[in-house]
Lab assay of single mutants.
Amino acid sequence: GSVVKEKKEKALIEVRPYVEYYNELKALVSKISSSVNDLEEAIVVLREEEKKASEPFKTDIRILLDFLES
Rank of each mutant, 00 (worst) to 15 (best):
V19I: 12
D60I: 15
I43S: 03
V44Q: 12
A27W: 05
N37I: 07
A42S: 07
A42L: 15
L39F: 11
K58P: 01
S54T: 11
V45R: 14
V15L: 11
L64H: 00
L46C: 02
K58R: 10
Y18W: 05
V19F: 06
E24S: 03
V15F: 02
V45W: 08
K5T: 12
K26C: 07
E55V: 07
V3W: 00
V36I: 07
D38P: 04
S70M: 12
K8C: 15
S2Y: 00
E69K: 09
I63Y: 08
S2V: 10
I32A: 04
N23D: 15
I61E: 00
P56G: 10
E50L: 08
I63A: 03
R62V: 04
K58N: 04
V45F: 08
G1K: 08
E24N: 03
S35H: 11
A42V: 15
L39V: 06
P56Q: 05
L46Y: 01
E6C: 14
N23F: 12
V44N: 11
I13C: 14
D60K: 01
E9G: 04
Y18V: 14
S35G: 10
V3F: 01
E6H: 03
E40L: 09
L12D: 02
L65S: 04
E9F: 07
K52F: 08
K52S: 08
V4E: 12
Y21H: 10
E6F: 01
V3H: 12
N37S: 12
P17L: 05
Y21N: 15
K5F: 05
K58G: 04
E40M: 09
K58C: 04
D38F: 07
K5V: 13
P17N: 13
A27K: 06
E48A: 09
I13R: 13
E20P: 01
L46E: 00
L39D: 13
S2D: 14
L28P: 00
K51N: 12
D66N: 09
Y22F: 13
S33H: 06
K31R: 11
T59A: 11
I43F: 08
Y22G: 02
F57A: 02
F57D: 01
E20S: 10
S70P: 09
I13A: 14
S30T: 14
V15D: 06
T59M: 04
E50Y: 10
K10G: 05
L68N: 00
I43P: 00
I32H: 04
R62I: 04
V44K: 12
E55M: 07
V44I: 10
R62P: 00
E24H: 03
K31S: 13
Y18M: 15
R16G: 15
P17I: 15
D66L: 11
A53M: 04
F67W: 12
Y21S: 06
L12P: 02
V4Y: 02
E40C: 08
P17Y: 05
R16F: 15
E69F: 07
E24T: 04
E14R: 04
N23S: 07
K8H: 15
E6L: 01
E69M: 09
T59Y: 04
A11S: 04
L28W: 02
G1L: 01
V45A: 14
I13E: 15
K10Y: 05
K7L: 15
L25C: 02
Y18N: 15
V19K: 01
L28Y: 01
R62M: 08
K8R: 09
D60R: 01
L12Q: 01
L28T: 02
K8A: 15
N23Y: 13
F57C: 02
F67H: 07
K51I: 11
V19C: 12
E55L: 07
N23C: 13
V19D: 10
E48K: 08
G1C: 14
I61K: 00
D38V: 07
L68W: 05
A42P: 01
E9H: 06
D66Y: 14
E24D: 09
E55K: 04
V4D: 14
S34M: 11
S30E: 15
R47P: 00
Y18E: 14
D66T: 12
S54D: 11
K26F: 12
V44W: 09
F67A: 13
V3T: 14
A11R: 03
V15Y: 02
E41T: 08
A27S: 11
K5L: 13
V45Q: 14
T59P: 04
K51A: 13
I63Q: 03
S54P: 09
V29L: 09
K7Q: 11
R16Q: 15
K10I: 14
F57N: 01
K52H: 09
V36D: 06
K8M: 15
K7D: 09
L39A: 06
V29M: 09
E48I: 09
E49H: 07
I43Q: 04
E24Y: 03
Y22A: 01
K7C: 15
A42Q: 09
Y21I: 02
A27I: 09
E49C: 07
V15M: 02
E49M: 03
K7V: 15
I63S: 03
Y21R: 03
N23V: 14
A11L: 11
L46V: 02
K31Q: 13
E6D: 14
